[in-house]
């Protein structure tokens, strides 16, 4: 059982994620798993049926999952977005900014280190999916 570290309130989804194709064929489950090469836009018409989207990072250098997560948030999805696979603590700040709100990596994260990593940078230079106000807005009130 992979440990899940959640940054969102409310109960975790009980649904078992299925592949994108399976989900689109038979969309009762409420949870889907996005592989690195999957086109997340195919989910846009059915976002209201989802509670959990798992996005996999096959190697932590493979950054496709960042776009997938942010695009889901841009499309209005409010449910859980969970990062799985090769997720290091050094990625979690960027992940949170792109809309991830839970982590279930192959090697469990240390919650204290995650907390420190998320608090590391006092500002952001650009808007993303986390609603943080970028420096350019702070400068001009």
């Amino acid at each position: 059982m992979v440990e899940v570290l959640r940054l969102r309130d409310g109960p975790a989804s009980e649904a078992e994620p299925v592949s994108l194709d399976s989900f689109l064929d038979d969309s009762d489950g409420g949870a889907v798993r996005i592989e690195a090469g999957d086109d997340v836009e195919r989910l846009f018409p059915v976002l209201d049926r989802l509670q959990l989207v798992e996005i996999d990072f096959p190697r932590f250098r493979d950054g496709r999952g960042f776009s997938s997560a942010r695009m889901l948030r841009e499309a209005g999805y409010r449910g859980e977005v969970r990062a799985t696979g090769d997720v290091l603590v050094d990625l979690v700040w960027f992940m949170q900014r792109c809309g991830f709100d839970s982590f279930a990596p192959d090697v469990p994260l240390n919650p204290a280190e995650v907390e420190a990593a998320l608090a590391r940078y006092p500002h952001v230079y650009q808007p993303a999916a986390d609603g943080r106000v970028p420096v350019w807005a702070l400068r001009h009130g």
Binding site: G63, F66, S67, R70, F94, M95, Y121, Y125, Q126, A128
Partner: peptide, 8 residues
């Protein structure tokens, strides 16, 4: 700098 979507 530190672009979250485009750092990997």
């Amino acid at each position: 700098s530190f672009m979250p979507e485009f750092s990997y």
